[in-house]
Amino acid sequence: MFDIVVNGSRHQVDVVPEMPLLWVLRDELGITSPKYGCGIALCGACTVQVDGEAVRSCQARMADVAGKAITTIEGVGNGKLHPVQEAWIEHQVAQCGYCQTGQMIQAISLLKTHPKPTDEDINEVMSGNLCRCGTYERIRVAIHAAAEKIGGK
């Protein structure tokens, strides 16, 4: 039995210690916003926050995240839309949308350390999050827009 706190709610899960956090969230807790893309940290679709840091949940094992606070896209806005989500809507970023929850979690993490990111900052931090639809240009524009929103508050 492991304890896990997801979006503020405490859960107990009975899984093997090596189970990836991604499968704990999706199959044990029914939180399907983090997506399985590659399973080897090459695509970023499974990105969630662990104690506030963006992490590839396909790589994090249950034993290593027990007791830690996990945040998925459902939990980033405290019941409202996060400025990053608002910007994602305003700029119509998503096409198929499969990678986008991971993209937004990574973008939120980026904006914490780079409140006014340059294009180069965005290229560096977002390069591990792939999008087969090719929405990169709109992701960049939306991140700048979200930075403005957060800075203006």
């Binding site: 210690p17 090596e18 399973g39 080897i40 940290a41 090459l42 990105t47 840091e53 963006a54 992490v55 590839r56 790589q59 994090a60 094992r61 034993a63 290593d64 990574q106 900052d121 560096e124 931090v125 390069s127 591990g128």
Partner: peptide, 20 residues
């Protein structure tokens, strides 16, 4: 930029097969 630990986990569990 992006911490190494985004993908390379801090863990005492054995390593997974390449290319993980």
């Amino acid at each position: 930029a992006i911490p190494c630990s985004t993908c390379h986990m801090t863990s005492t569990l054995p390593n997974d097969p390449a290319p993980a």
